[in-house]
Simulated scan of single mutants.
Amino acid sequence: MAKKRPLILVINDDGINAPGIRALIQVMNTIGDVCVVAPDSPQSGMGHAITINDALYCNSIKVTNGDPHQEFSCSGTPVDCVKIAVNEILKRKPDLCVSGINHGSNSSINVIYSGTMSAAVEAGTHGIPAIGFSLLDYSQDADFEPSKKYVKIITEEVLKNGLQTGVVLNVNIPKLSESEIKGIKVARQADAHWEEKFDKRTNPVGRDYYWLTGEFVNKDKGEDTDEWALYNGFVSVVPVQFDLTAHHAIKELNSWDFPPNPQREK
């Protein structure tokens, strides 16, 4: 009996027409049965935002290139796409969710702003193994061919081995040719940050407005980080957890002198 192909949900934040998601779909079609649910317009930097004050629209798109997969465009955020896919579109829970391939880095602190990674995290909260893929190239004309090899390797490893409950993978791929990429490094998130600046301007009617700019600052000198791996020509793989509890701080907080609850004294 032939082995059943895994059901793979494909999401992104750059929009359903972005070249990155097209590359990801191509790889996933070689691995499993694919359903694409992606925003109908770019949603970069949306983080874990969801739509609660507007209606959500989801439209089926005819696939014209002969590929067997299904596609849907959604008016909402990347996280909305996961929710509507799991609850309304798919007949069963997918075996895997892949998000991307993002145009630009989601390494280090960028993971908390990323719509790409938030989609993967949302899938993880539903008990679906999930991976977010990003290429360190913001260009619309980015070359995703070198990424495909590593996307397939990592995807097949996740399908074979599974992921621990509460963990999803954040994968970043350097902007290099396939022959220049040195391999894959499992890493931690670098301790880095953005030093934000705002470019203040005034419009023709005298109203001030702002453009967010800034500089990415990495002072983490560790050789076990995603930033080190990428700088040195490796694909970085960071396991990310969505339990945000700072477990190491609980003992200290319990030592604080909190006042007793007056209701309990009555």
Score class of each variant (00 low, 15 high):
residue 1 M to G: 13
residue 4 K to M: 13
residue 8 I to C: 02
residue 8 I to T: 07
residue 9 L to M: 06
residue 14 D to E: 13
residue 15 G to S: 08
residue 16 I to C: 05
residue 17 N to H: 14
residue 22 R to M: 05
residue 23 A to V: 02
residue 27 V to W: 03
residue 28 M to Y: 00
residue 29 N to W: 11
residue 33 D to C: 09
residue 34 V to R: 00
residue 37 V to E: 01
residue 37 V to N: 01
residue 40 D to Y: 03
residue 41 S to L: 07
residue 43 Q to C: 13
residue 50 I to G: 04
residue 50 I to L: 11
residue 51 T to D: 05
residue 54 D to Y: 10
residue 56 L to Q: 02
residue 57 Y to W: 11
residue 60 S to E: 11
residue 61 I to Q: 14
residue 63 V to Y: 09
residue 67 D to I: 01
residue 70 Q to R: 04
residue 70 Q to M: 05
residue 71 E to M: 14
residue 72 F to K: 04
residue 82 V to K: 02
residue 87 N to F: 00
residue 90 L to P: 08
residue 91 K to W: 08
residue 97 C to L: 14
residue 100 G to R: 03
residue 101 I to L: 10
residue 102 N to E: 04
residue 103 H to Y: 00
residue 104 G to F: 02
residue 104 G to E: 01
residue 105 S to F: 01
residue 107 S to R: 15
residue 113 Y to G: 12
residue 117 M to W: 06
residue 118 S to M: 05
residue 118 S to I: 00
residue 124 G to S: 13
residue 124 G to V: 01
residue 128 I to H: 02
residue 133 F to Q: 07
residue 134 S to A: 15
residue 138 Y to H: 10
residue 141 D to H: 10
residue 147 S to V: 02
residue 148 K to R: 04
residue 148 K to E: 07
residue 149 K to V: 04
residue 150 Y to D: 07
residue 161 N to V: 06
residue 162 G to H: 06
residue 164 Q to T: 04
residue 166 G to L: 00
residue 167 V to R: 11
residue 170 N to I: 05
residue 178 E to T: 06
residue 180 E to F: 06
residue 186 V to K: 07
residue 189 Q to Y: 07
residue 192 A to T: 01
residue 192 A to G: 04
residue 192 A to Q: 03
residue 193 H to A: 09
residue 193 H to D: 08
residue 194 W to R: 15
residue 196 E to F: 09
residue 197 K to V: 03
residue 201 R to H: 13
residue 201 R to Q: 14
residue 208 D to V: 07
residue 209 Y to F: 15
residue 212 L to Q: 11
residue 214 G to M: 07
residue 217 V to D: 06
residue 217 V to Y: 05
residue 219 K to T: 10
residue 222 G to C: 12
residue 227 E to A: 14
residue 232 N to C: 09
residue 233 G to W: 04
residue 234 F to T: 03
residue 236 S to E: 06
residue 240 V to I: 15
residue 241 Q to S: 15
residue 244 L to A: 14
residue 250 I to H: 12
residue 251 K to F: 10
residue 251 K to H: 11
residue 252 E to Q: 12
residue 258 F to L: 15
residue 261 N to E: 14
residue 261 N to T: 09
residue 265 E to S: 09
